[in-house]
Simulated scan of single mutants.
Amino acid sequence: MNNYLKGVLLVLASAFAFSFLPIFVVFAYDGGADANTLLLIRFSLATVVFFSYLKLKRYNIKLDRSTLFKFFLLGVFGYTLQSRFFFMALKYITPAIASMFLYTYPVLVSIITYFVDKEKPSLRLAASIVISSLGLVLVMGASMGSVDIRGVGFALLASLVYSLYIVASNKLIKRVPAVTASAYIVLFSAFGTFIIGSLSGGYNLDFEPYTWIWIIGIALVCSVIAMITFFKGMEYIGPTKTSIISLTEAVYTVVLSAIMLQQFLTVWQLIGGAGVLFGAYLVARA
Protein backbone atom coordinates (compact mmCIF):
# COMPACT_ATOMS: atom_id res chain seq x y z
CA MET A 1 0.00 0.00 0.00
CA ASN A 2 1.50 3.36 -1.03
CA ASN A 3 1.65 6.35 1.29
CA TYR A 4 -1.06 8.30 -0.51
CA LEU A 5 -3.60 5.49 -0.06
CA LYS A 6 -2.53 5.13 3.57
CA GLY A 7 -3.18 8.83 4.07
CA VAL A 8 -6.64 8.62 2.51
CA LEU A 9 -7.63 5.63 4.66
CA LEU A 10 -6.30 7.25 7.83
CA VAL A 11 -8.25 10.46 7.21
CA LEU A 12 -11.41 8.45 6.51
CA ALA A 13 -10.91 6.62 9.81
CA SER A 14 -10.38 9.95 11.56
CA ALA A 15 -13.58 11.35 10.05
CA PHE A 16 -15.55 8.34 11.28
CA ALA A 17 -14.15 8.69 14.81
CA PHE A 18 -14.81 12.45 14.86
CA SER A 19 -18.39 11.91 13.62
CA PHE A 20 -19.36 10.44 16.99
CA LEU A 21 -18.44 13.68 18.76
CA PRO A 22 -21.67 15.69 18.31
CA ILE A 23 -23.76 12.61 19.07
CA PHE A 24 -21.90 11.88 22.29
CA VAL A 25 -22.03 15.56 23.29
CA VAL A 26 -25.83 15.65 22.88
CA PHE A 27 -26.17 12.53 25.04
CA ALA A 28 -23.81 14.03 27.64
CA TYR A 29 -25.85 17.27 27.73
CA ASP A 30 -29.00 15.19 28.25
CA GLY A 31 -27.27 13.54 31.20
CA GLY A 32 -26.65 16.89 32.88
CA ALA A 33 -23.06 17.67 31.85
CA ASP A 34 -22.00 21.14 30.69
CA ALA A 35 -19.48 22.30 28.08
CA ASN A 36 -16.77 23.34 30.56
CA THR A 37 -16.81 20.00 32.33
CA LEU A 38 -17.01 17.94 29.13
CA LEU A 39 -14.05 19.70 27.56
CA LEU A 40 -11.85 19.56 30.66
CA ILE A 41 -12.45 15.83 31.20
CA ARG A 42 -12.08 15.15 27.49
CA PHE A 43 -8.67 16.76 27.18
CA SER A 44 -7.42 15.57 30.58
CA LEU A 45 -8.23 11.91 29.89
CA ALA A 46 -6.80 12.15 26.39
CA THR A 47 -3.59 13.67 27.78
CA VAL A 48 -3.13 10.78 30.22
CA VAL A 49 -3.73 8.19 27.48
CA PHE A 50 -1.40 9.87 24.98
CA PHE A 51 1.55 10.34 27.31
CA SER A 52 1.11 6.86 28.81
CA TYR A 53 1.31 5.45 25.31
CA LEU A 54 4.39 7.54 24.50
CA LYS A 55 6.13 6.32 27.66
CA LEU A 56 5.16 2.71 26.99
CA LYS A 57 6.51 2.88 23.42
CA ARG A 58 9.56 4.86 24.59
CA TYR A 59 9.00 7.80 22.30
CA ASN A 60 11.29 10.77 22.67
CA ILE A 61 8.93 13.50 23.91
CA LYS A 62 11.54 16.22 24.36
CA LEU A 63 10.93 19.24 22.14
CA ASP A 64 12.88 22.43 21.70
CA ARG A 65 11.40 25.58 23.22
CA SER A 66 10.29 27.03 19.90
CA THR A 67 8.36 23.90 18.90
CA LEU A 68 6.88 23.55 22.38
CA PHE A 69 5.65 27.13 22.28
CA LYS A 70 4.01 26.55 18.90
CA PHE A 71 2.18 23.53 20.29
CA PHE A 72 1.14 25.68 23.23
CA LEU A 73 -0.44 28.17 20.83
CA LEU A 74 -2.11 25.40 18.83
CA GLY A 75 -3.57 23.82 21.94
CA VAL A 76 -4.58 26.88 23.95
CA PHE A 77 -5.79 29.12 21.12
CA GLY A 78 -6.51 26.58 18.39
CA TYR A 79 -8.01 23.29 19.49
CA THR A 80 -9.42 24.71 22.74
CA LEU A 81 -11.37 27.47 21.02
CA GLN A 82 -12.49 25.31 18.10
CA SER A 83 -13.82 22.63 20.46
CA ARG A 84 -15.48 25.18 22.75
CA PHE A 85 -17.24 26.94 19.88
CA PHE A 86 -18.47 23.64 18.45
CA PHE A 87 -19.70 22.38 21.84
CA MET A 88 -21.53 25.67 22.37
CA ALA A 89 -23.14 25.38 18.94
CA LEU A 90 -24.56 21.98 19.93
CA LYS A 91 -26.47 23.65 22.78
CA TYR A 92 -28.57 25.59 20.26
CA ILE A 93 -28.70 23.58 17.03
CA THR A 94 -28.74 19.91 16.07
CA PRO A 95 -25.60 17.91 15.25
CA ALA A 96 -26.57 17.84 11.57
CA ILE A 97 -26.92 21.61 11.27
CA ALA A 98 -23.80 22.27 13.35
CA SER A 99 -21.80 19.94 11.10
CA MET A 100 -23.02 21.70 7.98
CA PHE A 101 -21.72 25.06 9.13
CA LEU A 102 -18.52 23.59 10.57
CA TYR A 103 -17.78 22.00 7.20
CA THR A 104 -17.42 25.32 5.47
CA TYR A 105 -13.78 24.99 6.60
CA PRO A 106 -12.37 23.14 3.55
CA VAL A 107 -12.91 26.23 1.40
CA LEU A 108 -11.22 28.36 4.06
CA VAL A 109 -8.30 25.92 4.29
CA SER A 110 -7.77 26.06 0.54
CA ILE A 111 -7.81 29.86 0.55
CA ILE A 112 -5.45 30.13 3.53
CA THR A 113 -3.10 27.49 2.09
CA TYR A 114 -2.96 29.38 -1.20
CA PHE A 115 -1.76 32.55 0.51
CA VAL A 116 0.53 30.81 3.03
CA ASP A 117 2.08 28.01 0.93
CA LYS A 118 1.21 29.24 -2.58
CA GLU A 119 -0.60 25.91 -3.04
CA LYS A 120 -2.99 26.90 -5.80
CA PRO A 121 -6.01 24.55 -6.01
CA SER A 122 -6.17 22.43 -9.17
CA LEU A 123 -9.33 22.32 -11.26
CA ARG A 124 -10.14 18.86 -9.90
CA LEU A 125 -9.66 20.07 -6.33
CA ALA A 126 -11.83 23.14 -6.94
CA ALA A 127 -14.54 20.93 -8.44
CA SER A 128 -14.40 18.61 -5.42
CA ILE A 129 -14.89 21.59 -3.10
CA VAL A 130 -17.95 22.74 -5.03
CA ILE A 131 -19.47 19.25 -5.29
CA SER A 132 -18.83 18.41 -1.65
CA SER A 133 -20.21 21.75 -0.46
CA LEU A 134 -23.38 21.36 -2.53
CA GLY A 135 -23.69 17.84 -1.20
CA LEU A 136 -23.47 19.13 2.35
CA VAL A 137 -26.29 21.58 1.69
CA LEU A 138 -28.47 18.70 0.51
CA VAL A 139 -27.41 16.44 3.38
CA MET A 140 -28.31 19.01 6.00
CA GLY A 141 -30.89 21.10 4.14
CA ALA A 142 -33.93 19.12 5.17
CA SER A 143 -32.98 19.63 8.80
CA MET A 144 -32.76 23.41 8.70
CA GLY A 145 -36.24 24.55 9.76
CA SER A 146 -35.94 27.25 12.37
CA VAL A 147 -32.28 27.71 13.29
CA ASP A 148 -31.01 29.48 16.39
CA ILE A 149 -28.61 32.14 15.13
CA ARG A 150 -26.42 31.70 18.19
CA GLY A 151 -25.70 28.11 17.23
CA VAL A 152 -24.89 29.12 13.66
CA GLY A 153 -22.51 31.81 14.90
CA PHE A 154 -20.64 29.41 17.19
CA ALA A 155 -20.40 26.79 14.41
CA LEU A 156 -18.98 29.33 11.95
CA LEU A 157 -16.43 30.50 14.53
CA ALA A 158 -15.45 26.86 15.05
CA SER A 159 -14.98 26.53 11.28
CA LEU A 160 -12.73 29.60 11.06
CA VAL A 161 -10.55 28.57 14.01
CA TYR A 162 -10.33 24.99 12.72
CA SER A 163 -9.14 26.20 9.31
CA LEU A 164 -6.30 28.18 10.85
CA TYR A 165 -5.51 25.25 13.16
CA ILE A 166 -5.19 22.77 10.26
CA VAL A 167 -2.84 24.98 8.25
CA ALA A 168 -0.69 25.83 11.29
CA SER A 169 -0.46 22.24 12.54
CA ASN A 170 0.63 21.01 9.11
CA LYS A 171 3.87 22.97 9.55
CA LEU A 172 4.67 21.22 12.82
CA ILE A 173 3.77 17.61 12.03
CA LYS A 174 6.40 17.54 9.32
CA ARG A 175 8.96 17.62 12.14
CA VAL A 176 7.14 15.90 15.02
CA PRO A 177 5.55 12.40 15.05
CA ALA A 178 1.75 12.46 14.87
CA VAL A 179 1.20 10.84 18.26
CA THR A 180 3.61 13.27 19.95
CA ALA A 181 1.93 16.22 18.28
CA SER A 182 -1.49 14.99 19.42
CA ALA A 183 -0.25 14.50 22.99
CA TYR A 184 1.05 18.04 23.34
CA ILE A 185 -1.98 19.60 21.68
CA VAL A 186 -4.45 17.90 24.05
CA LEU A 187 -2.17 18.72 27.01
CA PHE A 188 -2.22 22.42 26.22
CA SER A 189 -5.91 22.22 25.30
CA ALA A 190 -6.58 20.88 28.80
CA PHE A 191 -4.65 23.83 30.21
CA GLY A 192 -6.53 26.33 28.04
CA THR A 193 -9.87 24.74 28.91
CA PHE A 194 -9.08 24.88 32.63
CA ILE A 195 -8.31 28.61 32.45
CA ILE A 196 -11.34 29.50 30.32
CA GLY A 197 -13.67 27.26 32.31
CA SER A 198 -12.50 28.66 35.63
CA LEU A 199 -13.27 32.17 34.39
CA SER A 200 -16.65 31.30 32.88
CA GLY A 201 -18.74 29.49 35.47
CA GLY A 202 -16.49 26.70 36.69
CA TYR A 203 -17.28 22.98 36.46
CA ASN A 204 -20.13 20.68 37.45
CA LEU A 205 -19.73 16.99 38.23
CA ASP A 206 -23.34 16.63 39.35
CA PHE A 207 -24.54 14.70 36.31
CA GLU A 208 -26.06 11.25 35.80
CA PRO A 209 -23.54 8.39 36.30
CA TYR A 210 -24.24 6.94 32.84
CA THR A 211 -22.97 10.20 31.33
CA TRP A 212 -19.43 8.95 31.96
CA ILE A 213 -19.94 6.51 29.06
CA TRP A 214 -20.35 9.39 26.62
CA ILE A 215 -17.57 11.45 28.21
CA ILE A 216 -15.07 8.58 27.96
CA GLY A 217 -16.19 8.02 24.37
CA ILE A 218 -15.53 11.70 23.60
CA ALA A 219 -12.03 11.42 25.12
CA LEU A 220 -10.92 8.12 23.60
CA VAL A 221 -12.78 7.76 20.30
CA CYS A 222 -13.28 11.41 19.32
CA SER A 223 -9.95 12.67 20.65
CA VAL A 224 -7.22 10.03 20.89
CA ILE A 225 -8.12 7.84 17.91
CA ALA A 226 -9.47 10.67 15.76
CA MET A 227 -6.48 12.97 16.30
CA ILE A 228 -3.76 10.38 15.72
CA THR A 229 -5.28 9.18 12.46
CA PHE A 230 -5.95 12.77 11.34
CA PHE A 231 -2.37 13.96 11.85
CA LYS A 232 -0.85 10.79 10.44
CA GLY A 233 -3.04 11.01 7.37
CA MET A 234 -2.18 14.69 6.87
CA GLU A 235 1.53 13.79 6.93
CA TYR A 236 0.93 11.73 3.79
CA ILE A 237 -1.51 13.86 1.76
CA GLY A 238 -1.30 17.48 3.03
CA PRO A 239 -3.86 19.84 4.60
CA THR A 240 -6.10 20.67 1.62
CA LYS A 241 -6.81 17.07 0.58
CA THR A 242 -7.17 16.10 4.24
CA SER A 243 -9.83 18.76 4.76
CA ILE A 244 -11.81 17.66 1.70
CA ILE A 245 -11.76 13.94 2.51
CA SER A 246 -12.77 14.81 6.07
CA LEU A 247 -16.09 16.01 4.63
CA THR A 248 -17.21 12.39 4.87
CA GLU A 249 -17.49 13.04 8.62
CA ALA A 250 -20.72 14.94 7.90
CA VAL A 251 -22.20 11.91 6.16
CA TYR A 252 -21.21 9.68 9.06
CA THR A 253 -22.78 12.16 11.48
CA VAL A 254 -26.08 12.16 9.60
CA VAL A 255 -26.16 8.35 9.55
CA LEU A 256 -25.31 8.14 13.26
CA SER A 257 -27.98 10.76 14.01
CA ALA A 258 -30.53 8.56 12.28
CA ILE A 259 -29.42 5.47 14.17
CA MET A 260 -28.74 6.92 17.63
CA LEU A 261 -30.95 10.04 17.74
CA GLN A 262 -33.77 8.79 15.52
CA GLN A 263 -33.24 11.64 13.04
CA PHE A 264 -33.96 9.84 9.80
CA LEU A 265 -32.57 10.64 6.35
CA THR A 266 -34.61 11.99 3.46
CA VAL A 267 -34.04 11.21 -0.20
CA TRP A 268 -32.39 14.63 -0.68
CA GLN A 269 -30.05 13.94 2.21
CA LEU A 270 -29.04 10.64 0.65
CA ILE A 271 -28.35 12.39 -2.67
CA GLY A 272 -26.31 15.03 -0.83
CA GLY A 273 -24.35 12.35 0.98
CA ALA A 274 -23.45 10.81 -2.36
CA GLY A 275 -22.22 14.22 -3.50
CA VAL A 276 -19.99 14.60 -0.46
CA LEU A 277 -18.50 11.17 -0.98
CA PHE A 278 -17.96 11.85 -4.69
CA GLY A 279 -16.09 15.05 -3.84
CA ALA A 280 -13.86 13.10 -1.47
CA TYR A 281 -13.34 10.49 -4.21
CA LEU A 282 -12.14 13.16 -6.64
CA VAL A 283 -9.46 14.22 -4.13
CA ALA A 284 -8.41 10.63 -3.46
CA ARG A 285 -8.20 9.96 -7.20
CA ALA A 286 -6.14 13.09 -7.97
Rank of each mutant, 00 (worst) to 15 (best):
K70E: 13
F16I: 02
L45V: 14
F77L: 13
V147M: 01
L102V: 06
M144P: 00
G275V: 06
F115Q: 00
S182M: 03
Y114T: 11
P95G: 03
V8P: 04
L164G: 07
R150E: 15
F188L: 05
S169K: 02
Q262S: 15
K171A: 12
F230G: 04
R58G: 09
K91A: 04
S198R: 10
L136F: 11
G192Y: 00
M260A: 12
F72M: 11
A13P: 00
L63D: 05
K91G: 06
L282E: 07
L90P: 04
T229A: 10
Y4F: 11
R285P: 05
I245W: 03
V186P: 05
N2K: 01
G31K: 14
T193A: 13
T67D: 10
G145M: 03
F16G: 03
Y53G: 12
P177T: 11
N3R: 14
P239S: 10
A178T: 12
A28M: 05
F278L: 15
M100L: 15
I111Q: 01
I215W: 05
F43C: 10
P106Q: 09
Y105M: 15
I111E: 01
Y162G: 00
Y281N: 03
Y281A: 09
K62R: 14
S169Q: 10
L265W: 02
S52D: 06
G7S: 11
L39A: 13
Y184D: 02
T253C: 06
L90S: 04
L277V: 15
L74D: 01
S146C: 02
L261Y: 01
V48R: 07
M1Y: 00
I41T: 07
Y103K: 00
K118R: 15
P177G: 07
Y203A: 13
R65G: 14
Q263A: 12
I166G: 04
F194G: 11
V130G: 08
G238W: 01
Q263I: 09
S243Y: 00
L74S: 07
P95T: 00
A33S: 14
L247Q: 06
A183Y: 08
L270T: 09
S182E: 02
Q82M: 14
L54R: 07
V267N: 08
G145P: 07
K241E: 13
F72A: 10
V107K: 09
G192Q: 04
I215P: 03
A178K: 04
A98G: 11
R285Y: 12
S200R: 08
W212R: 00
S99T: 14
L138R: 10
K120M: 10
V267L: 12
L9I: 08
A258L: 01
V221R: 03
D64V: 08
V147G: 10
A46I: 06
P239M: 04
S99H: 06
G75S: 04
L136A: 10
S159I: 07
A33F: 00
V161T: 13
S99C: 06
L56G: 09
S146N: 14
A142I: 04
Q263S: 12
I213K: 11
A274I: 13
L125G: 12
V130M: 08
L265S: 14
G197C: 05
L21D: 02
I271N: 00
S122P: 03
L265E: 05
A250T: 13
S163I: 11
L164V: 14
Y53A: 07
G135L: 04
S182P: 04
A17I: 09
G135V: 07
I173F: 10
Y59V: 06
L199T: 09
F194L: 15
L199I: 11
